[in-house]
Design a protein around this nucleic acid. Structure first.
Lengths: 229, 229
DNA sequence: TCAAAAGTGTTTATAATACACCCATGG
DNA sequence: CCATGGGTGTATTATAAACACTTTTGA
């Protein structure tokens, strides 16, 4: 007996993406203005449907690329939302991803085509369907991830100052951190390269630029990175 | 314009469940012997398909109930698996849940009907499809959860000894813990009720029984429970 | 010369770890 | 009377947190 699955219900599977960015002040998300009914004109996460011949990761990459023009974006699947009438048009289950991008790398033109806009997470508007719930869950996941391993560099330019990194962590964790303790802790992880180069835009004195050292990071055990802030 | 989704691919959505139990020695999982092709006779997680009118949580509860006869099982959704040919019969995306049950509460009869069997996690057999991958991810999630908040009581009988609790944590985390440090840490959480009652089966002296104090647990902030072991 | 941000160490408090002996009882 | 598992506290180490002044330089 070879069982087939013909009697089983098939459903639409959507992928929705929370795109995080950072503008040196706030943690931001990229939202689009929905241009079709229902909920036309309302703010929404970027999303799309899973094609039959692609994995969820691939669908997420495709969707992220559609709005940002970028490839190889850091992303993580985090939850499947399945309330029966979450989408009034048709039964749709949504698998959600969050993505971290350097806010300066996105494609302006695409953003305009989608009527997309960056919002501070703390000032996010009311979103369609259950997208606010998705956002909340994504933020909490990001906060937890940040405490376990130093992700977040994806949100910064290649070269960045300690202050930028600190501001980023403050934005993600939504709390102020002590400058000295922060620097000490980051330095103790030994995963940054200090450059002989200063960023002169932020102060008269200038501040050293750093790069993330992927090689050193990879060499260390994942559990060596308990970054309690 | 009201967009409909008629052109989009629909897919089968499965829910697979990793059912964890604990026999005072090892962390165990409940597996079934698949009784239809393909992979008939191989070991498998219990699973089923999402019905059109139910949420994923409800589907998981239904599936868990089918095998255990139990209601209100502690469970958590943890990942959606979507490799294109993960199921050779038809394109199927699987949303996976892990569940924690008291191994003594399940229904023996149902277990027999399914040719189900408890396996030690460390001696799990080769499973069908990507189920071993699911199991691995479930264990890691459970380990992380255990470190963040004291879940795990679901795996024990209502009344349990400190030693049982310690053995449970050792089984989940797969490492030995110091008896005194463990007790001190658990006591400092202040979420157990020490009963005036001893379990006499494990030693001549007998050991005090404890209960989980749900009320105290709920009163405390979630982040007060950093339980680093 | 001064405003604004960068850079830098030490002390204290808290949490984690390591560690060993006595107790109670049934056989 | 002894074998078995239960119960208990302290000292040490490691990590986290609190805290303030000097440096640089462009305007």
């Amino acid at each position: 007996m070879l069982k087939n699955y013909n009697n089983e219900d098939k459903v639409l599977l959507a992928v929705d993406c929370i795109i995080f960015g950072f503008d040196n002040e706030d943690l931001k998300i990229l939202l689009i203005k929905r241009d079709f009914e229902p909920e036309k004109g309302k703010w929404s996460l970027i999303g799309g449907f899973l094609n039959k011949n692609e994995t969820l990761d691939l669908a997420a990459s495709r969707i992220l690329n559609r709005l940002t023009g970028m490839q190889d974006i850091y992303m993580e699947q985090f939850y499947a939302f399945s309330e029966v009438d979450r989408d009034p048009v048709d039964r749709t289950i949504s698998v959600s991803y969050y993505a971290l991008i350097n806010i300066e790398n996105h494609n302006e033109e695409l953003i305009e085509n989608y009527n997309a806009k960056w919002f501070s997470v703390s000032k996010a508007p009311k979103l369609i369907f259950d997208h606010n719930e998705m956002l909340g869950k994504a933020i909490r996941r990001l906060q937890r991830r940040t405490s376990i391993r130093p992700i977040g560099f994806e949100l910064l330019p290649e070269k960045f100052t300690m202050r930028q990194l600190q501001k980023l962590y403050e934005a993600i964790l939504n709390k102020e951190l002590d400058k000295r303790n922060f620097i000490n802790k980051i330095n103790s992880l030994d995963i940054l390269i200090k450059l002989n180069e200063k960023d002169m835009t932020s102060s008269t004195k200038g501040s050293y630029l750093y790069m993330f050292d992927q090689k050193k990071y990879d060499e260390k055990q994942v559990n060596n990175f308990y970054l309690k802030l």
